[in-house]
């Protein structure tokens, strides 16, 4: 589904990603771990198509297509979803209105009619129940005055509504208490299927107890330096990133 070959990217002439290779297939969950500044968020932004990042080498293939020329919204239309680490506020635009616009713009791009109101309503009801979201919450301005946990839950609610092929969860666990973490993880797990894939970006192993990955990759200084199974996350938790750094040096 997603194939990244020798990806180099940066911002304002500063290279942050220094040759990433990654392959994610349908039905898989990949975790990308690494210390602060290793390039985790840059990787997710580059995949999603944030303009301020410049790809200087390599390629990103999504469903076999090079996405380099595609604008962020076009990538979204193809089914790439990013759950933001810091979701932005849009005052005066309700969660419902925002979702309706997002869904209908995506449908339009795919040559479909707007979603009928009744269907939209049904979907909203279903997905808000899945994420234990209060209906009043949906009429509030997007992310305005939301707690950290509410923001993240709202991100996953949007993911549930948009049903992406590939979801990238960027530090979705940060700012979540244990109950919220359970609800969010539960939501993500229920949305997993053999047709979609998830990339979980995180600092900590904690989230991976709930969303169990098929593969774990360690990102260090713009490169994936180690890949393994879920077991790798436990080793990291125990030994810290220094262990990998040392291993890298000794190699």
């Amino acid at each position: 589904m997603l194939k990244i070959n020798n990806l180099h990217a940066g911002v304002e002439g500063k290279e942050i990603l220094k040759g990433i290779d990654l392959e994610v297939n349908a039905g898989e969950v990949h975790a990308i771990m690494g210390p602060n500044g290793s390039g985790k968020s840059t990787l997710s932004s580059v995949i999603a198509g944030k303009e301020e990042f410049e790809v200087t080498g390599g390629e990103i293939l999504f469903e076999g297509e090079d996405v380099d020329e595609l604008a962020a919204e076009e990538r979204a239309h193809k089914g790439i979803f990013l759950s933001f680490q810091y979701p932005v506020e849009i005052p005066g635009v309700s969660v419902t209105n925002f979702m309706r616009t997002a869904i209908n713009e995506t449908r339009k791009a795919r040559g479909l009619e707007e979603m009928p109101a009744s269907e939209m309503l049904k979907k909203i009801r279903e997905k808000s129940e899945l994420l234990e979201i209060d209906r009043n919450f949906l009429s509030r301005s997007l992310n305005e005055g939301f707690s950290g946990g509410e923001k993240k839950r709202n991100e996953i609610f949007q993911m549930a509504m948009l049903e992406p092929r590939l979801a990238i969860l960027d530090e979705t666990d940060s700012g979540l208490d244990i109950d919220a973490l359970r609800i969010v993880s539960n939501g993500v797990n229920k949305l997993r299927s053999k047709d979609n894939a998830v990339i979980v970006i995180t600092h900590y192993q904690r989230l991976l107890d709930y969303i169990v990955p098929d593969f774990v990759h360690v990102l260090l200084d713009g490169k994936i330096v180690k890949s393994g199974t879920a077991e790798l996350a436990h080793v990291l938790e125990e030994k810290g990133y220094d262990w990998i750094k040392q291993e890298k040096v000794s190699n």
Binding site: E52, E73, A102
Partner: peptide, 14 residues
């Protein structure tokens, strides 16, 4: 903000 625009773009809104 650019961030607001990108957020919308990422949700499929041009």
């Amino acid at each position: 903000g650019e961030d607001q625009i990108f957020y919308c773009n990422q949700r499929g809104i041009d």
